[in-house]
């Protein structure tokens, strides 16, 4: 009896549920169809090539010649390749400096332009300008700035330090490139943080001030916790960008001096388009993808734990 009753109840609840699902599908269909062209383009030009690159890493490919399946041979070569490990070391050092650097500068600038005063919109636009500047152009300009006779070297000499080109110094080249990276990226981060800052109720800060909290304490205990989602988002994004750094470094140093700024993507490019070793370049690409994914997952885990 109980069984029959519950079956009836299920039937009674399932029929409207089906109707609702059908209605939802009809509602969603135009939207899905509108999304379809963009999705098709994404599959064709993003997902497809990525899969093809993955497949290529398991082959021995010659231009215009035969492609032979070689299994894990390219990955075996990768783990025994000193140049790969050297490029990975450079990429990690660069990322460790560039990611926090750009987030800290973005945070500072967002706090500065958060206030409303005459001309603040102009300042916000100016600070965002580097994001829309061509990276190649930025590379050319900063090459001059950090050159032997450039303004940075002249400034150092004027204040009593040793001048010289930072791009010709194996130790200073990465900090110089990190400065360029921060300059080109902070505007985007500033915008993300600013959007979040404007959502934080002013009452919270006012209450903290009433309770005797200073500016630093308010920032540390009220504002910063509210910014965590935005900061973690930027962390993932900036890490991905830093791992894929290429344009400005290629223009400014070509990976030099003496491989001191040869990142993984520069190594990939050299293997693929200078040495024409495209299957091996694809293998480096797969390794880069896996590493970026792992870093993103770790960041995601930390974010989840914090929640």
């Amino acid at each position: 009896m109980t069984t029959t009753a519950s079956a009836r109840e299920r039937a009674a609840t399932t029929a409207p549920a089906r109707k609702r699902a059908g209605a939802r599908w009809r509602e969603a269909r135009p939207g899905l169809l509108l999304v379809l062209p963009a999705f098709a383009l994404f599959v064709l030009f993003r997902f497809g090539p990525a899969i093809a690159g993955g497949v290529l890493s398991f082959t021995d490919y010659t231009i215009g010649g035969e492609t032979e399946w070689t299994g894990l041979a390219n990955f075996d070569r990768l783990v025994h390749d000193d140049r790969f490990w050297d490029a990975l070391r450079v990429t990690v050092i660069y990322s460790v400096l560039a990611v926090p650097g750009s987030i800290i500068v973005a945070l500072g600038m967002a706090m500065l332009v958060r206030r409303t005063f005459r001309g603040v919109r102009l300042f916000r636009s100016i600070f965002f300008l580097p994001v829309v500047t061509s990276l190649v152009l930025a590379g050319v300009i900063f090459s001059w700035i950090f050159s032997e006779d450039g303004p940075w070297s002249s400034l150092l000499r004027a204040v009593g330090f040793e001048g010289g080109s930072w791009l010709a110094d194996s130790v200073l080249v990465l900090p110089a490139l990190v400065v360029v990276s921060i300059w080109t990226r902070f505007g985007y981060g500033m915008l993300i943080i600013l959007a979040r800052l404007q959502d934080i109720p002013r009452e919270l800060e006012e209450a903290a001030h009433v309770d005797g909290a200073g500016s630093w304490q308010t920032f540390r205990h009220i504002i910063l916790p509210q910014l965590k989602p935005a900061l973690f988002f930027l962390g993932v994004l900036e890490t991905t960008v830093a791992f894929q750094a290429f344009d400005t470094i290629w223009v400014m140093t070509g990976g030099g001096p003496a491989r001191a700024s040869r990142t993984l993507v520069i190594e990939l490019y050299e293997q693929g388009f200078r040495n024409f070793d495209q299957d091996y370049a694809a293998t480096i690409g797969v390794a880069l993808f896996v590493m970026t994914l792992v870093v993103a997952l770790i960041q995601r885990l930390i974010m989840g734990r914090d929640k």
Partner: peptide, 14 residues
């Protein structure tokens, strides 16, 4: 020899 172009080649006009 000027040391600059040992690491970075400037555009020829520079």
């Amino acid at each position: 020899i000027n040391k600059g172009p040992i690491t970075t080649t400037p555009p020829i006009e520079q």
